[in-house]
């Protein structure tokens, strides 16, 4: 039996390599090779990841400058409400957390004067407003819904939050977390929503309470909130830490 030496097959390898190289250069140029480095591994950022991150931070600042604290998101008639309003989360609807309203406490932390926890009943005693606004998902789809609850600026006022702080952060019963800038937190349409439609917020939409921010993308509207904190240290978020733009204003 003849032993096969590497020299015998080298020309073939060369030819295969050349063919692969040609195919790669033909596949829309080197551009497609860049797809390997697009914030897909936050633990090991490469040069392109750092450039994209830098541009995302720049876009945070641009969006903060564009944001108007008085410009209202468009409101719609109730006839425009999307039915059924889509469920959306990083898990399936059946996995939505079950929160017991009787034992639920909203915890407060950080730069807040009165950190006593809140029950659902206490939250319902605060001023109540409702809105029919468009929820825009980062994926591009949108849906119109009706939410009711406590204007967030009223709540922040009531608990003595430091309104000069940069961020308001949220921790949720499903492990989700997110944060928003203080000007958006104080926007007149930002709501601590307790109701969807004209009924209590159901489990799939974030029982017992979610943040409704019609001036930001959907993933900046955390559901099942269990803790609110005020801070100057950037808190990030579930999706934001994976590469979604933090400000994500609309």
């Amino acid at each position: 039996m003849k032993r096969l030496r590497i020299g015998d097959i080298r020309p073939d390898i060369k030819q295969i390599e050349r063919r692969a190289f040609l195919r790669q250069s033909l596949s829309l140029g080197a551009l497609t090779m860049l797809t390997g480095c697009s914030l897909d591994n936050p633990a090991a950022p490469d040069f392109i990841d750092r450039v994209l991150k830098g541009m995302s931070h720049w876009n945070d600042r641009v969006q903060a400058a564009i944001f108007s604290p008085t410009r209202l998101a468009p409101v719609y008639p109730e006839s425009a409400i999307t039915k059924p309003f889509p469920f959306n989360a990083f898990y399936a609807e059946a996995q939505a957390p079950v929160v017991d309203g009787a034992t639920y406490r909203l915890e407060l932390a950080g730069m807040i004067a009165d950190k006593r926890p809140w029950t659902v009943a206490d939250l319902r005693k605060l001023p109540h407003e409702s809105q029919v606004t468009r929820h825009i998902c980062v994926e591009g789809w949108s849906a119109i819904g009706k939410w009711g609850g406590v204007p967030f600026h009223v709540f922040l006022e009531r608990i003595g939050a430091d309104k000069t702080a940069k961020y308001v952060g949220f921790k949720c019963a499903d492990g989700y977390y997110s944060s928003i800038d203080m000007p958006t937190a104080l926007h007149p349409q930002t709501l601590l929503a307790l109701d969807y439609g004209d009924a209590e917020l159901p489990r799939k939409y974030g029982y017992p309470m979610k943040l409704r921010v019609p001036t930001k993308l959907g993933f900046k509207n955390p559901k099942h909130i269990t803790e609110i904190f005020v801070t100057n240290d950037y808190p990030g978020g579930y999706w934001e830490d994976q590469g979604y733009n933090w400000f994500s204003g609309s």
Binding site: S27, L28, L31, T32, L34, T35, G36, C37, S38, L39, D40, V51, L52, K53, M55, S56, N59, V138, E139, W239, Q242, G243, Y244, N245
Partner: peptide
Amino acid sequence: QLTLGAWLGGALAWHFAAMW
């Protein structure tokens, strides 16, 4: 395979960087 960004977050980052 024809797209850039590997996932939605990566594609958005490219899109909003290249727009400048």
